[in-house]
Design a protein around this nucleic acid. Structure first.
Lengths: 368, 368
DNA sequence: TAAAGTTGTGCAAACGTTTGTTCATAATTA
DNA sequence: TAATTATGAACAAACGTTTGCACAACTTTA
């Protein structure tokens, strides 16, 4: 019986990590010296350092981050909070951030709020409890209250917001110029001869959509095109919403020659309905979306859209974040960084660009 | 000078978390009692427990997870490793897992390997160092060596693989029946009258692609259609690869009437080239992809594809994982769970389904 | 009514680091 | 050569929990 128990225990035995103490004992020095040797403390002799490094490698020593975090208060973890990770924009930004964090020996805890304000709050608290050294976040659509983020700041934990930001928090923010993006998109449509431009926007009046709407209005103004309230359609901006909005427009018989949507998803839905009704794009109606989701280049015609500079945003967000991290909390002056978006003209708004193939055909025809 | 320093220090003062000790002192009891009270230890009296809970709430006490993790060896963190998070399939699985973990008070650390074997190794080590209680992973395409995962198992840390799995590790796995998915897809194409079916596959011969190829071959066999090596095209399976593969096929003048791709991205590319060359889909060539990426339903025609049951896979993976977690390492018998995929027939392979609108039109026409 | 069991709490060690302080020795300066 | 400074390493405390053990005060059992 005893023997069997012993056997079981033996099998259960987990491979134990070697610790600083193990290295210290082998070398007949103290753990503190080992620790300093591994952390390149200047007061450690080259010979000791070499010995320690060698022994550490030999034993496959891996520092226990938990213990380190407890003692030093630095976890080398940065928490990222996004509404969803399943959006090209967000995952690109994350990739940009990750590239930076890795270089500096930090790791990322990724959490999704699914645009749920309560979940967002829980996540942020959990991240703080987990001892992250900083938080990078993009707000959920339904977030109207910011105590959880305020708390982060008060704890002296660096916080950077990107894309979906708020003025109610006095923290560093990185965003694109939504106003400009919308303005350029609408200006482009006008330059293509459009006069009755529908705008699809979100019924939740969060910053980015307000700005896009403002860009739309100002561009119309600039070109002396009257603003028609009827042409601004509010919805949840998903594909189905785009479909519904377009179906409604057609049913009501409202006259229009272009659609500028604040989301690629809803413009996709709108385009589907237009195609199904035999309305030629871009001949009869021209379309521009927002976000440069990958699928916009797959469709036929491909969809013009506004690129949000996700990679750049990720890089810059990370840079600002780590600058903040180095500074003591008092020196952290919140800064706003606004990136210029890029209008990508594709087949849905420019006849000649209907597809790459068409283009090459045309050239061949001219040649022959 | 002194005063100024004092002021600075005051400003810098971070809001300190209250600890068990703070609660204990206020109530004139010991931290151990407080700890037990908060953890519902049976030997704590109801009155003490209530007092502690009240005081904890009053002080906004949040347990320090780091300290708890260090002492108890349980971090309540589960690490997820996926090639990329920017794929509907993966993010759906993750969502399924998250739903489960949250209920049980666990948190998720999400990491992306970007199909880079070295990065994957680093990530797994980092997760172990970070003290995760378990790991859920989907292998990168280039992973050929599994020591890092073996290490996880040896440490007694539960490991579950999903979708991209390997037989070289004796751990629990959850996957779909790739063979069946492919078989059904090809069978469907044959039932639509196709005889010369191209198969786009990955040049990396990882499990899932091998299985899909096998399904393709067996379906042909079953229906006495000769296997033609020329019709199997290997590539990296991205959109551009699909384009190239199709361009090559057309250039070589190879005869075919259908394409079954092991990826939605490459079938998308292939479809673009076909459309650009004026080849009618599904009349001349029928297409089926694999993965049910959202964009497959956006295109025109919409693309038939094989759904990978991502939500179910996430749920089941999480269930298996937490079962494992409860058991001592010795009792962890690896189990394989194979889910049935679902063939989704859309316009790219069925003429009558070209679009929902067409369908409704037809109905109306019949009526009138 | 003494022995045995229960219940509620305190004590102190432990988890594996990091880090301020001390202390000896070696190198520099006056 | 004595006084000072640099250098390298040891000591010990600390981070905030958890947890085995001890122990007093009760309650039950014989």
């Amino acid at each position: 019986m005893d023997k069997k128990l012993g056997l079981i225990n033996f099998q259960r035995m987990k491979k134990k990590n070697p610790t600083l103490l193990d290295i210290a004992e082998k070398l007949k020095i103290t753990p503190s010296t080992v620790s300093r040797a591994l952390n390149n403390h200047p007061r450690i002799s080259e010979t000791t350092r070499k010995q320690v490094l060698k022994m550490a490698a030999e034993l496959h020593y891996e520092p226990n981050k938990i213990a380190s975090a407890l003692r030093s208060g630095k976890s080398k973890l940065v928490g990222i909070v996004v509404p969803t990770v399943n959006r090209n924009f967000f995952s690109s930004v994350i990739r940009g951030i990750e590239a930076h964090t890795e270089k500096l020996g930090y790791h990322v805890i990724l959490s999704q709020s699914y645009d749920d304000a309560i979940k967002e709050k829980q996540i942020v608290q959990a991240l703080v409890n987990a001892g992250v050294d900083g938080v990078i976040a993009s707000l959920g659509k339904n977030t109207t209250e910011f105590n959880h983020f305020q708390e982060v700041v008060e704890r002296g934990i660096p916080l950077v917001l990107f894309d979906r930001v708020t003025d109610k928090l006095d923290v560093s923010q990185v965003m694109i110029d939504d106003y400009l993006g919308a303005y350029q998109a609408v200006e482009h449509l006008i330059s293509q001869g459009c006069q009755r431009i529908v705008h699809l926007t979100n019924f939740r009046k969060i910053n980015i959509y307000k700005e896009r709407l403002r860009g739309y209005q100002d561009a119309l103004n600039e070109y002396k095109i009257p603003f028609d309230r009827q042409l601004v359609i509010e919805s949840n901006m998903q594909l189905v919403d785009g479909r519904k909005s377009m179906e409604n427009l057609l049913k009501k018989g409202i006259n229009f020659d272009a659609v500028f949507s604040a989301s690629d998803y809803s413009i996709m839905g709108a385009m589907q309905v237009l195609i199904e009704n035999g309305i030629k794009i871009p001949e009869k109606v021209k379309l521009v979306g927002f976000g440069n989701e990958p699928f916009t280049s797959f469709t036929s015609p491909s969809i013009s859209t506004v690129d949000q500079r996700s990679i750049a945003m990720g890089q810059i967000t990370a840079e600002i974040f780590f600058e903040l991290l180095e500074k003591p909390p008092t020196d952290r002056i919140p800064q706003k960084t606004i990136l210029k978006p890029e209008l990508i003209k594709r087949g849905s708004s420019v006849s000649e660009l209907k597809s790459a193939k068409d283009l090459s055909k045309k050239i061949i025809e001219i040649k022959s």
